[in-house]
Design a protein around this nucleic acid. Structure first.
Lengths: 243, 243
DNA sequence: GAGTGGTCTAGACCACCCT
DNA sequence: GGGTGGTCTAGACCACTCT
């Protein structure tokens, strides 16, 4: 209790929230890379001068937010952002049997530019800030079915536009190369008619109803790190949500 | 510890899970109607023969599932399913400014029939079971924008087809008249072209892209209590999901 | 067998609501 | 001021993993 109270006497809120913030900061700062085990609860409690119960409450909260994973008898681990795991968590399209669809990506086009007004608003940027724009097609069984236009703020991702190899999941690259952890996304879904451009890219007739998914992505600190608009032709597939 | 252990010695799992199940059963059984206060933690603990911490863990889990609401200094209350609250929780359409849309309902048509094969599959029914089919239009600012086709199993809702007054939110009726508490929904979302029938009902041209929302609704016990397919014409509005 | 997280207890004090 | 949930502690035992 002593150390923490002293170290954080300016902070607000309950002890466990402060413990959670400390652990989160160390993870976000790269002290404990994904996949590594955190110190045991008792050890963290000793280090921070709090009881085991308080540490437990903080780690439980981080477990709910999928920042850490707990394995009984083994330890508490920083959540792994493997490509498969990321797809599972953030790719929300399922086929008619209820199985999640795992798409392939075609090579992408990268460009950089000063952010326009919409991009500044969606990514919380200031005038003059630059962005990286990515355009790609995703395929399913060899056939194109989804068009992605992705916009990233350039500042946290220096040199990303020069990447030669484009992984199937961007979020894996974010984490491994730039130490940016995707924490959550918000999606706005609508139905739109395929424009000539989209019809051509997806191999459907102009006017075909497409699902438009407008996604904002946040990192562990709540910063916006991606704006993505996907257009999908869902043949015997659907977007899935649980309320 | 004594009473509970004896009463539930055949049960499995940790104590707090058993406490949670007991409280849930009493709520679902109508012992504590929505809006009423549960006994205080200490009292529940005494009644059930467990410690306050164990009761707390059970109530915390029920809070996460939105079955109860806790108010510091006041008490723990069975979640209220007011019309406004239900709309807020389960109507997932927002306008361009990010405000939730609160639709009006037109009078609905009710029919009853033996469940067909699809309905039996979607509602977990047996051959010969009957269903109630409801068809209605929802409006926004006086203009129709959503067509609902709702199917309910008849058994838990006797006499519902004869209701003269149709509330704006069905779920409120479920709770007040039939003591069935909506716990969660799963939704499959796709984009479809408006058929002639839908175009006519929604006042759009045939072929207009519509959002099709296919919802399955579950009660507190995990039983399927509703299958609903909505078709929406979203003009400057969107379906919203958080991942 | 040693170490870890998971459960459970008993008791203390605090923050808040109500009347 | 009395009652309620919210936080925190200290200690115990259990279930599981690893080697």
């Amino acid at each position: 209790m002593r150390k923490l109270r002293v170290a954080l006497e300016e902070n607000s809120g309950p002890l466990y929230a402060q413990v959670k913030a400390i652990v989160l900061a160390r993870i976000a700062g790269g002290d404990w890379p994904p996949g590594t085990a955190l110190p045991a609860e008792m050890e963290l409690a000793r280090e921070l001068g709090v009881s085991q119960g308080t540490v437990r409450k903080a780690l439980d909260a981080l477990t709910v937010e999928q920042v850490v994973v707990r394995r009984q008898g083994s330890g508490t681990y920083v959540a792994e952002h493997t490509p498969a795991h990321m797809q599972f968590r953030f790719f929300n399209i399922y086929d008619e049997s209820g199985a999640q669809i795992l798409p392939d990506s075609q090579p992408a086009r990268f460009t950089t530019a000063a952010a326009n007004a919409v991009e500044r608003r969606r990514l919380d940027l200031s005038e003059g800030d630059r962005v990286i724009r990515i355009s790609r097609i995703r395929t399913r069984g060899g056939r194109p079915f989804m068009d992605d236009r992705i916009v990233l703020p350039e500042a946290p991702f220096p040199g990303l536009a020069q990447e030669t190899e484009m992984p199937n999941t961007l979020y894996d690259l974010f984490q491994k190369r730039y130490r940016i952890h995707v924490a959550r996304t918000e999606e706005q879904v609508t139905a739109v008619a395929a424009t000539a451009r989209l019809a051509d890219r997806l191999g459907v007739r102009a006017g075909t109803p497409l699902l438009a998914i407008d996604r904002t992505t946040y990192d562990l600190n709540g910063r916006r790190i991606e704006w993505r608009v996907s257009h999908a032709y869902l043949d015997r597939a659907h977007y899935f949500a649980r309320l």
